[in-house]
Nucleic acid binder design. Structure first.
Length: 787
DNA sequence: TGTATGGATCTTTTT
DNA sequence: GATCCATACA
């Protein structure tokens, strides 16, 4: 577009032609299809830097959205390194973080209290349970989890209760509960994650001045991981992007793995159509992996029908072949993996550059045991995170009550914790009293009588006293006072296992401390004083926004409209800001973080990461692809994308393994190797064990005769002690022999290929002309020999 | 009011 | 196998 500029700008120096083209696109809507390892984040950040360096806009005109705090932080860091710009003046953050920021600035118009608090998933569930109890909802017919799923789903689709399509009595009831839950949240001044998005969206949609203001302001909207946006987020973007704005969406449809939580890959196609996108650029140059790995990924994903189409390429050579291993048992698989890891470590591969991936968390146990016994340090991702721990939630509940006494969820969490003689009956009485007057539990306390009333009154008095005493204290002091006065510290001191919890509570003090000191407590933008990103920016010149003075000024008159309640100059108290921070950023995973350790995680949580060596384990039908996803074709495609993500995590070496049997949910399951093996290019693979089984037809499914789950009594560790020798011995006694013809009621006539096991465990691989090869348990399958 | 026992349930996860 | 949850009991 601007060749001279492009050639001159040092920003563009290290970009390939595709990346450069993307970065320097004109101010119009664009979709960047960025394959795995193609420098997506780099393009996104350089685009922002480039826009700013052109001098036509200032930092205040940029809105950049990501899905995780981690991604947002990284973007800010990189941007800060690229340009001498105050990144804090920009709206860079997660969807939820930005919506929070928006609602904090316009709380009045959004019909929220200025102190509104955010419910995380746990809080939401307990709030729903409370609604159900208060309204006598049958939790047999309507499990709370299901309702939570339903409510979140509605919000993700942008649907208020009155907009949900109702078909039948059950729907009607669900919507009714949804409404009751909404009322309760409103009454208590809390919002769940979905609500943050939905309410922001509605305010933008319905309030013309507000919408116009932000439209005028955010000239450039950039979105990361666009394939993961849900319906509501898409609508939010659409309402924000008016005339003259440009939306720069970066995504990879092949890495869309969150449909189960509302993500719509279709948003990419919709975007192109509805925004009349004229610029689409594919980033297909991969800088991560060798070509055997990339070929595998490409070949696999080509089996998906619904894709926009993209092929990764690399300048690096073929590299090592992809190693495939078949184990007899999950334990043997783990043992083999541990052995390989030891070799790698011996060859100076850093442990942190080795990742073991699996489809579901339940699979980590065997792997952990293996590594543990071998004395290899490892780190498991995906456990409880810091702010989700019970003791932290308790402490936060106290803090939230200081901020907002009407927060009934927090009230109930700590009213009797540590125990202070307020049991279920007292609480019930209190809830009745509160319901009668429509007040919060806190306010209803004075209506209760008797011993229960005394205890409750003492509790409320304690909270209220704490609130007064902490007035004007620093955040650290507030938390110290709270920890003492609430009795939490004393309680855990008395508890046998309390030491670690106390440590965590102390860590909370540290977290608060660093939250306050770290470059003002607005590092993550969420906690910035309203003034700084609300009204002030609009009226001041770009240079006072922290824009580097050497950059040209914006040649545009200041917008004339200032949103009403952003104009108060009001700031969030450090405590409120910290609580918001705790809700929006659940904290690091627990860990031996920083330690040199092998990385264990699900494929989902590996997205966005890369390692020199990757093991993908448990590649078995029913597990990966998961049998729950096989119900529909879309589900299978998502599983395949998941596999694609798994493969593309590896830089140098990739291992794929599966096991013939696996202990799952206390039962031994016989598993056929994943169909994904058949979708990989043979030339790129190296079979470490004889390639014997193969997955047959696609008619594999529920009730199709394959006995996936059966209880067995043998101790698998003893039966298959050696990982090197898969048992391929035939067992007699059932009268079948390889080569025999048999008849099956569902699959018809077939030929016995292989036999193994004995007694109840005996099974046979049988080739059916129309249904392919199947492993059948002889004690279950109805087989008749055919002469 | 706190504790013990049985029973159901078990993809994937961020905010 | 393990954990969370609800109900029954001391």
């Amino acid at each position: 577009m601007f060749p001279e500029v492009a050639a001159e700008s040092p920003l563009l120096q290290h970009l390939n032609p595709e990346q450069r083209a993307a970065v320097t696109l004109p101010d119009e809507h664009a979709l960047i299809l960025a394959g795995a390892g193609s420098g997506k984040t780099r393009v996104l950040t350089t685009r922002i830097a480039w826009l700013l360096s052109q001098g036509r806009i200032g930092p205040g005109n940029v809105l950049a959205v990501t899905f995780t705090n981690k991604a947002a932080k990284e973007m800010m860091t990189r941007l800060g390194a690229m340009l001498p710009v105050n990144v804090r003046g920009m709206w860079i953050g997660t969807f939820h973080g930005l919506c929070n920021r928006f609602l904090r600035a316009h709380w009045k118009l959004a019909n929220l209290p200025s102190t509104f608090q955010i419910l995380d998933t746990q809080d939401q569930l307990s709030a729903i349970k409370r609604v159900m109890k208060a309204n006598n909802v049958d939790d047999e017919r309507f499990p709370a989890k299901e309702l939570q799923w339903f409510i979140s789903g509605c919000k993700e689709d942008g649907l208020r209760p009155n907009m949900v399509e109702v078909r039948g009595e059950e729907d009607r009831r669900k919507v009714e509960i949804y409404q009751l839950y909404e009322d309760q949240c409103q009454r208590e001044g809390v919002v769940d994650f979905g609500e943050l998005m939905l309410r922001s969206y509605e305010l933008l949609r319905d309030n013309d001045p507000i919408r116009e203001h932000y439209r005028r302001r955010f000239r450039h909207i950039l979105i990361d991981e666009f394939q993961d946006t849900n319906k509501l987020q898409y609508a939010w973007i659409k309402v924000l992007a008016g005339e003259g704005n440009s939306v720069f969406a970066v995504g990879d449809d092949d890495q869309s793995i969150y449909a189960f939580r509302g993500a719509r890959v279709g948003n990419m196609a919709d975007f192109v159509r509805e925004f009349n996108v004229q610029h689409q650029i594919k980033l297909e140059q991969n800088y991560r992996s060798y070509s055997n790995i990339l070929d595998s990924a490409n070949e696999l994903i080509s089996h998906n029908r619904n894709r926009l189409g993209k092929n990764l390429r690399t300048d690096q050579g073929a590299g090592e072949p992809v190693r495939v291993y078949e184990a007899p048992t999950d334990m043997a698989e783990a043992q083999w993996m541990v052995e390989e890891v030891r070799h790698l470590v011996r060859d100076d591969v850093p442990k942190s550059e080795i990742a073991v991936l699996y489809r579901s968390n339940a699979q980590s146990r065997v792997i952990e045991t293996g590594l543990f016994n071998a004395g290899v340090p490892y780190r498991v991702y995906g456990g409880l995170r810091f702010f989700e721990r019970a003791e932290i939630k308790h402490a936060l509940a106290y803090l939230r009550l200081l901020e907002n006494p009407n927060d009934d969820t927090s009230f109930l969490r700590v009213v009797n914790f540590p125990p202070r003689g307020i049991g279920a009956r007292s609480v019930e009485q209190l809830q009745d009293a509160a319901k009668a007057t429509g007040s919060s539990l806190h306010d209803a306390v004075h209506k209760t009588t008797g011993k229960a009333g005394t205890n409750l009154a003492a509790f409320v008095a304690k909270i209220d006293r704490m609130r007064e005493e902490t007035q004007g204290l620093t955040l650290r002091e507030i938390i110290d006072v709270m920890l003492q006065q609430s009795g939490l510290i004393d309680h855990y001191k008395a508890e046998r296992e309390g030491a670690e919890r106390i440590e965590n509570l102390e860590e909370l003090v540290n977290a608060a401390e660093s939250f306050v000191t770290q470059e003002g407590f607005g590092r993550d933008a969420v906690a910035l004083p309203i003034d700084e990103h609300g009204s002030t920016m609009l009226r001041q010149s770009p240079s006072s926004q922290g824009l580097d003075p050497s950059l040209p000024e914006i040649n545009e008159p200041a917008p004339d409209y200032v949103p009403p309640d952003a104009d108060t100059g009001e700031t969030l108290s450090p405590l409120a800001a910290f609580l918001t921070h705790a809700a929006l950023e659940s904290g690091d995973n627990q860990a031996q973080a920083g330690q040199e350790a092998v990385q264990l995680m699900t494929v989902h949580s590996a997205k966005g990461l890369e390692f020199d060596v990757v093991f993908v384990t448990g590649l078995e039908e029913g597990l990966f692809p998961s049998e729950r996803s096989l119900a529909d074709y879309e589900g299978l495609e998502e599983e395949r994308r998941l596999m694609y993500v798994a493969i593309t995590r590896a830089r140098k070496r990739l291992y794929l393994s599966h096991s013939q049997t696996r202990l799952l949910h206390g039962q031994t399951r016989y598993n056929v190797k994943s169909r994904f093996f058949d979708e990989l290019p043979e030339h790129a693979l190296k079979w470490l064990t004889p390639k014997n089984q193969s997955f047959g037809g696609s008619a594999f499914g529920f009730g199709m005769g394959y006995p996936t789950t059966r209880s067995t009594s043998y101790k698998s560790s003893e039966t298959f002690a050696s990982p090197e020798v898969p048992p391929q011995k035939a067992a007699p006694a059932h009268g079948l022999k390889p080569g025999m013809k048999v008849f099956h009621t569902k699959f018809g006539e077939g030929k016995v290929q292989l036999l193994e096991g004995s007694g109840d465990d005996a099974r046979a691989k049988i080739a059916f002309p129309r249904h392919g090869e199947k492993w059948l348990a002889l004690s279950v399958a109805k087989l008749t020999p055919v002469d």
